[in-house]
Design a protein around this nucleic acid. Sequence first.
DNA 1: CCAGACGTTGTT
DNA 2: GTCTGG
DNA 3: CCAGACGTTGTT
DNA 4: GTCTGG
Length: 223
Amino acid sequence: MCGRYLFQTPAEELIGEFDLASLPDDLSPQYNVAPSHLVAVVGNKPHGLGRGLVRMRWGFVPRWATDPNAGPRPINAKSETAATNPAFRDSFHTRRCLIPATGFYEWHTTPAGKVPQLFRPTAGTPLAFAGLWDVWNPNGESPLFTCTILTVPANGTTAFCHHRMPAILPRGDYAAWLDAKTPLAEVQALLRTSPDDLLTATALSGTVNSVRNAGPDCLTPAA
DNA sequence: CCAGACGTTGTT
DNA sequence: GTCTGG
DNA sequence: CCAGACGTTGTT
DNA sequence: GTCTGG
């Protein structure tokens, strides 16, 4: 997957699946989410507080990092290796999450240049990306919550842009994904390439190319 | 045993 | 945190 | 992901 | 070209 995704609506349908005590009050639509931006995440909260919606920065920092400003902040993690990769293993076991989105962008490289493409669910319902999160808080100061989106091989609809795509979970898999008690083999099996008919591609104007453009015009189709 | 290192994906 | 090296 | 910036030596 | 910032 690329470094940009659409979080157009709060995905209240998605969130409504869960019994949430409170919701952040700033879940306005985002049309051009970039790394380091705050995104909403549904996950098992730290300290055993159960499920909830948490605002996190997109770009993963493991809890053992000595300096969160040094080193990479990966926005994606390969689903095939996340369970054993040192950077993600611990979160794969105990800190899985869902990242709601109404679609995502990929850039199609053509001889004429790069054309942004919008991938949205054909059915129009919000998507839930499978993600991992962590919290960096070695000094007991303000904790840094971060997350990353897992990727899987592209399907027939997305492959013309990229060979990877986000891991998208069907509604029926949300609970098992978030449940820390789900056996690891079952967790791993949830990360699959989506059917070709899940998403529909639309070529866009270049508005989305700049993160300075963060409004609905990011969705404007190509002329 | 302790000390110390350890972070990504996806491009071309 | 977990793993490696000494 | 894309857009946009990206300058030195030698001095105190 | 490469790196940073958004």
